[in-house]
Design a protein around this nucleic acid. Structure first.
Length: 730
DNA sequence: CCATAGACTGAAGAC
DNA sequence: CAGTCTATGG
């Protein structure tokens, strides 16, 4: 038996052993919440609970696998029966078992983001909306608005009014698109990410048999990262748990979360779920894990400083009983290009040091790491990148996936169209016509139309043939790859050998699956990593979002300048600005021993085709000078330590007066509740000679919701291009 | 005259 | 990779 009392602290022990009632674990960063879940899994297994009745919902499948792996390691026995993964993947497997009535008998396919975009584009075109209108939102933007509406469970026009008021003129058109898109999915038997959750909720409510069967099976539910669940997800937990205290429902739910780490409000996550948990489960115990076991005090000091400045004041103070630790470094490269070189050199140093070589470089957006990727390649340092483009985003992989999907679901419209478009002479118009004909069932017309494209006909015949053979996933994919080969060479004459390797990889991955549709679902839900084994010795590049829940000995954060971190998209509303703060908090708390914050003095502006002075991120400006050690790059690439002083003072608006005080600003404050956000926005306008170009007057309302154009012009736009910045308040 | 192919630019975060 | 613009083929 495992000695839980000595392996865990008192709070962790309480959380692990509280299996009778619902438990909410509020766990600070690095306070051992993974450890708690791992020990709880082991504890349950040791006390005779069948792994089959445990459900572990985490943010990534990888997180679930790792916890299960660690738990079975503790136990000396496997925990194979535990169902673990994301809400979405769990929903898919539940729906596979208990499909909703409208899907009866069909293999539903999950749409990936490319499918969603294609579908929306088609709906938009069919309705003749937004043609040639530059102010009409881009397809990807429409997708994010529709998804936001569903995740927040708010009508679409409400979401537009609140989050994108400049799109109000298009609200009607967008609502029409939303409707058409819903019809499209039903017709083609497709589920998008949001459908997975709502359809499962529907099944649990309407299909008593299914609900009972799932409830009987899952007696122990554990939900990680609860602060990033949305309303439906909370309802799903509730529905799966059944009535608390009701006869025969011994279901025990444990939710683990940290409100300071909520970084998914943009996709509808609702921190209220944590606050409402005790209402949902009145008998719930609440346990707090506070001591940090991960990071050194200097790292925690920076993290604490970040939260201290949050207007909402999370009552969080991370502490460790370990003393000492390397100071956090505030590094100022000359520009983003030399940042890549400095980071590469730093990584090389760390790799040669005695420290365990677990190093991560984190950044706000996928493309921020491009320069670094080049520099690392040149230096011969192996890395692995998470976030941004996925393995399954590559065109050739998508092609093969399309074949596999059409194998499962001949009506899968995006797949059909993708395959059609592979052949010469078929463009958007023709492929839609062909799909319509093929599904309407007019044999003669269909025959005639398809006869013009013999290669496409061959594809269809090939798929019919493979379908008849009912092959295993690996064999089916091998056949597809072989069939696709000539097309691959035709479409990618320059680099098809490299792409062929990717195709071999995907065939190989399929070998682990019993059924093709399960494999397809996993590809759409989470791109499985190519081969885990060679990850040894590689450093990690990752977006902060993808770094959630992970930790490294050394963490380097890139591009802590305005426009990048916080992202320029996060300016419109104070809540979004605060989410950026929590995002940076998450990034810093990933570090165990070493934390480097990179604040390039200049960044490349693509429009101007030149380097431009960058403004340090407001989060950096507010950091007390004692929190870190400043290193400035001098010409020639040398880093020099600068004696304690306010790190890299903001260029034009010193941190001592970041907020406007003049009376004329008070009317502007109306819409922007947070003075921090206002100070920040003002800084952007006045802090740079190019501000007028940067935020065009007619776009100002986007950045300052609620401000009229007149106010903006009279109160704000006081400088002309190229002139010295001047500010009415001064 | 429509539909397609090819060149070019610009990127948020993720299930 | 997606979206847009333009040249060209049917």
């Amino acid at each position: 038996m495992i000695d839980y009392k000595t392996s865990l602290n008192a709070a962790q022990y309480a959380a692990v052993t509280a299996t009778e009632s619902a438990v909410l674990v509020v766990a600070g960063a690095g306070s051992g919440k993974t450890r708690t879940i791992v020990y709880r899994l082991a504890y349950l297994a040791e006390h005779g609970v069948d792994p089959h009745s445990m459900l572990l919902l985490t943010f990534t499948r990888k997180a679930a696998q790792e916890m299960l792996h660690r738990a079975s390691h503790l136990l000396d026995q496997g925990l194979a029966g535990v169902q673990g993964g994301t809400f979405h993947s769990f929903a898919f497997s539940a729906l596979r078992q208990f499909p909703p009535a409208w899907l009866a008998g069909r293999h539903a396919t999950i749409m990936d983001s490319a499918d969603i975009n294609a579908a929306l584009k088609q709906c938009k075109d069919d309705l003749h909306l937004g043609k040639g209108d530059r102010s009409f939102p881009k397809t990807a933007h429409i997708a994010s608005l529709l998804s936001k509406a569903r995740n927040k469970e708010m009508p679409l026009d409400e979401v537009i009014r609140r989050d994108a008021c400049h799109l109000m003129p298009h609200a009607d058109a967008l609502c029409q698109i939303e409707e058409a898109y819903a019809a499209y999915r039903r017709r083609a038997g497709l589920l998008d990410y949001d459908d997975l959750l709502f359809e499962l909720e529907g099944v649990l409510r309407e299909n008593a048999l299914a609900a009972q069967s799932l409830r009987e099976r899952f007696r122990y539910i554990m939900v990680d990262e609860y602060q990033d669940t949305n309303r439906v997800q909370a309802r799903l937990v509730r529905l799966l748990a059944g009535q608390e205290g009701a006869e025969g429902s011994a279901c025990s739910v444990m939710a683990v979360g940290d409100e300071a780490q909520s970084i998914y409000a943009f996709r509808g996550a609702d921190v209220r779920n944590i606050l409402d948990f005790p209402t949902l489960f009145p008998k719930a115990r609440i346990i707090r894990l506070e001591e940090n076991y991960r990071s050194t005090q200097p790292v925690l000091d920076v993290a604490n400083a970040l939260l201290r400045n949050a207007p909402e004041g999370y009552r969080k103070h991370l502490f460790t009983s370990k003393a000492g630790g390397e100071p956090v470094r505030y590094v100022v490269p000359i520009n983003d290009n030399s940042q890549a070189d400095l980071v590469t050199a730093r990584v090389q140093d760390l790799l040669q040091s005695h420290l365990p070589h677990e190093i991560a470089v984190l950044f706000r957006a996928g493309f921020h790491s491009y320069q670094l990727e080049l520099a690392l390649r040149k230096a011969g340092i192996a890395f692995r990148k998470y976030g941004g483009l996925k393995f399954s985003d590559a065109a050739h992989i998508k092609d093969v996936i399309a074949y596999a999907r059409m194998l499962l679901n001949p009506l899968d419209m995006p797949a059909f169209e993708r395959i059609a478009a592979l052949h010469r002479g078929i463009g958007p118009k023709t492929m839609r016509k062909l799909y319509a004909l093929a599904t309407e069932g007019q044999p003669e017309a269909t025959h005639k139309a398809f006869a013009k494209f013999p290669e496409f006909l061959q594809d269809i015949a090939f798929l019919d043939d493979v379908r008849a053979k009912a092959l295993q996933p690996e064999a089916a994919l091998t056949a597809i790859v072989e069939h696709y080969r000539p097309l691959l060479e035709e479409h990618y004459p320059e680099d098809y050998p490299r792409r062929q390797q990717g195709l071999e990889e995907i065939t190989h991955m399929a070998a682990d699956y019993q059924a093709l549709d399960l494999f397809m679902a996993d590809l759409a839900l989470e791109s499985p990593d190519e081969e885990e084994q060679d990850s040894e010795g590689k450093i990690t590049l990752s977006t902060v979002h993808s770094a959630k829940g992970l930790e490294w000995n050394a963490v380097i954060i890139l591009d802590l300048v305005e426009d990048r971190f916080p992202s320029r998209h996060a300016l419109a509303r104070p809540e979004e600005f605060e989410e950026e703060r929590r995002l940076l908090y998450v990034a810093c708390t990933r570090a165990r021993q070493i934390l480097d914050l990179c604040v390039p003095a200049a960044t490349y502006n693509r429009q101007e085709r030149m380097q431009e002075y960058a403004v340090p991120s407001p989060f950096m400006r507010e950091l007390p000078s004692t929190a870190c050690q400043t290193w400035v790059e001098s010409f020639g690439g040398m880093l020099q330590q600068r004696e304690a002083q306010q790190p890299a003072p903001s260029r034009l608006l010193p941190p001592s007066q970041p907020q406007p005080s003049a009376p004329e600003q008070s009317k502007a404050v109306g819409a922007l509740a947070s003075p921090v956000a206002l100070g920040y926005c003002r800084h952007r306008i006045f802090g740079r000679g190019k501000a007028i170009k940067y935020i065009a007057p007619d776009k100002m309302q986007v950045h300052f919701p609620g401000l009229g154009i007149k106010t903006i012009l009279t109160d704000y736009l006081v400088m002309e291009e190229g002139s010295a910045p001047s500010c009415p308040a001064e």
